[in-house]
Computed example of a mutant assay.
Amino acid sequence: MAISVFDLFKIGIGPSSSHTVGPMRAAALFATALRERGLLAQVTRVEVRLYGSLSATGVGHGTDRATLVGLMGEWPDRVDPKQIAPRIEALKEARELLLDGSHPVAFDWQRDLLLDENLPYHPNAMTLIVEGAAGELHRDTYYSVGGGFVVDEAQAKAGQLDQDATELPYDFSSAEELLVLCQRHNLRISE
């Protein structure tokens, strides 16, 4: 797995990348998947279930707000942090979520945002569910595994924590291996 400095040092809202950046990314990925599958127009209800640490401390860390803003189609590195509070207040007042920034769905904060126990794979878990007139349309469970990284349930079950298959010209796993590569190729670390 290749992790760049840009992966490690993400731009996003705080105070915790596991509680805000990861959940916002997961929710935005979910909203994008709904759009790509042609399901947005059919959605009549959205349910958010926060588990484990996201449930126990997430509200204090902003997980609830980050997730809902992600469902609105916002991404952690592109959202204007000053717009989050007014958008959440508007959602609570109107009791309507603008899913993927385009599809209005009734949203009752008390009914549709649930705090729950742990899931087996990781303590930072969330399940997003959408329903239509005929029942459930789509659901996915995501795990915020730290540093703003997320994996969905299929990746977790497959043991696939990273989808990046980039072949690196100078692959290394330790500082010692990095120094050996630098000597072998007559390169500085920055190169």
Rank of each mutant, 00 (worst) to 15 (best):
I3K: 15
E167M: 13
L98S: 01
T127P: 02
Y51S: 10
A31Y: 04
F6Y: 15
T67H: 01
P15G: 08
I84V: 08
F107M: 03
P104L: 03
L98I: 03
E176L: 11
P76Q: 01
A165L: 13
V46M: 02
E74D: 04
D100M: 01
D152A: 03
Q110K: 15
T141I: 11
L34Q: 00
H19M: 14
F6D: 14
R35E: 02
P86K: 05
H61F: 14
Y142S: 03
L137W: 03
T141Y: 02
L181A: 04
A158T: 06
G132K: 08
R188L: 08
G147P: 05
S16P: 06
T67L: 00
S17K: 06
L71A: 00
Q163D: 14
G14N: 11
P81Y: 09
L99E: 01
F149M: 14
L34E: 00
L115A: 08
P23T: 13
L181T: 13
P123D: 07
A154I: 14
G52D: 07
L39F: 04
Q163C: 15
T166V: 11
D80L: 11
A56Y: 07
L39M: 11
L39Y: 01
A2H: 10
G132Q: 06
G132T: 05
A134G: 11
S174K: 06
R37W: 06
M1I: 11
K92F: 09
D64F: 02
Q163S: 14
E89D: 12
S17G: 13
